[in-house]
Amino acid sequence: MARNDPDSNRAPAETVISASNLSLTFETNDGPVHALKDVDLTINRGEFVSFIGPSGCGKTTFLRVLADLEQPTGGSVSVNGMTPREARMKRAYGFVFQAAGLYPWRTIAGNIKLPLEIMGLSKSEQNERVQKVLELVHLDGFGKKFPWQLSGGMQQRASIARALGFDADILLMDEPFGALDEIVRDHLNEQLLELWAKTNKTIGFVTHSIPEAVYLSTKIVVMSPRPGRVREVIESSLPRERPLDIRESAEFLAIAHRVREGLRGGHDDG
């Protein structure tokens, strides 16, 4: 397994995602809802960035703005130096939703092929990539199964494989493990880190869980609700190589404590 030298990733500090003064207001029947307000954020290549905060803090909305699934009402945002729409048209990112959302009429391999078919890749290239990503998420041999024949954890892994298939540099994940139990979640977190190390992608990851955020991230963005804004950005001092038991180390607990403090401050204001 290839290991990444931390310095080689951090040295160029190339900006992949940047948002400045980003605002998004939903007009509802009960008046405007400020889902995002004046968000400034920069994400560099190869970073693993978690967004954490209570419900309604705009973390999912922010991710959806990056994916061009929501339109901001103010400020600017760029993904790979392009607008989110251009980035989407160039398939600059893979998106993993809260639920696996696999199409039940397609096999696992067929689901992973879906974006590849849309991109118009050749059959042999499709098969090659399917095989590669199935191995990455440890699902080799399950390609011919249908989604409803697999467990929830395996389905979510398949949906990650689907997002990896077209080899975008950026992976956006919206609470991908939120619906899974703790044991499966630990396992998938570990595998996700391994995958991140292998592929060196830039990952944006929305979560409700403080331990999950601290365990995975190089940078933790703490957000507060009403209006949704960035309260604090915490750079993690943990090494990139992280065994599961790092979660009992003093350093880990210190970062978790800072995140918790940040969240509490957010609540007081809200």
């Binding site: 699934l69 160039k90 879906l114 849309i118």
Partner: peptide, 23 residues
């Protein structure tokens, strides 16, 4: 969510129709 997924793939109307909505 399934439509959003097609959107993130930058799929056109006919692609979404044949690969998602008709099935």
């Amino acid at each position: 969510m399934q439509r959003d997924l097609m959107h993130t793939y930058a799929a056109g109307y006919w692609q979404s129709l044949f690969k998602l909505r008709l099935p």
